[in-house]
Computed example of a mutant assay.
Amino acid sequence: MAKCNQCGNDYDKTFQVSRDGQTWTFDSFECAIQMLAPICAHCSCRVIGHGVEGSGKIYCCAHCAEEKGVQGLEDRV
C-alpha cells in the first residue's frame, strides 16, 4: 500500500500524477486537486477546468480576470 501525499491515507488503490519531473501519490482525485490545481487569482477557488490566463495569472473564468483588470478574455469564443 502507498500513502497519499495530500492526506496521508495508506490505501491500496492509490494512483500517481507526474508533472514537471515530479511525481505524487494520491488516494483520490479530491486530494490531487487540493495539492495540484491552481488557485484563481481573484476568487481563490481551485481551477479544475481549463480556466483562463492573463497578465501572468490564472483565473477560473473571464469574469474573475476582468474583476482584476484583465481585458480581452472570453470564457467561450
Rank of each mutant, 00 (worst) to 15 (best):
A41N: 08
Q16W: 02
H42Q: 13
V77I: 10
E74H: 09
S44P: 00
Q22K: 15
I48A: 10
A41T: 00
A32D: 05
V70G: 01
R19S: 13
E53T: 14
Q34R: 12
C45G: 02
G21N: 08
E30Q: 10
L73W: 01
L36K: 07
V52L: 09
D75N: 15
A41L: 00
G54I: 05
S18H: 06
I33M: 04
G54E: 10
C31F: 06
G56K: 11
C61Q: 09
I39A: 05
I58Y: 07
G72E: 11
V17A: 07
G69A: 10
C4D: 12
S44C: 02
E66C: 05
E74W: 00
C40A: 03
Q22F: 07
S55A: 15
C4Q: 00
D27K: 06
I39T: 14
G72H: 12
D27L: 08
Y11W: 13
V70K: 02
V52I: 13
D12E: 14
A32Y: 03
A41F: 00
A62H: 11
R19Q: 14
Y11S: 12
Q71T: 14
Q71C: 03
Q16H: 10
L36V: 04
R76F: 13
S28R: 06
R19N: 11
C40F: 00
C31A: 10
I33G: 02
E66I: 02
F29E: 14
S28D: 09
R46A: 13
H50G: 15
Y59F: 15
L73E: 01
S28M: 09
L73C: 09
T23Y: 08
C31N: 12
E30T: 08
C61P: 09
Y59A: 04
D75L: 03
G56S: 10
R46W: 03
F26M: 07
T25G: 06
E30I: 05
I58K: 14
V52D: 01
E67M: 15
G56V: 10
D12G: 06
C7I: 05
Y59V: 04
S44Q: 14
K13M: 09
C61A: 11
C40D: 01
R46P: 01
M1E: 10
T14D: 04
C45N: 10
V70W: 01
T23E: 10
A41W: 00
C64N: 11
I58A: 12
A62P: 11
S28A: 12
D75F: 00
A2W: 02
C7T: 04
R46H: 14
A37C: 08
V77Y: 06
S18F: 06
D12K: 12
R76I: 13
G56M: 11
W24S: 11
D12V: 09
Y59C: 07
D12L: 07
I39V: 15
A41R: 00
I48D: 12
C60K: 05
D75C: 05
Q16F: 03
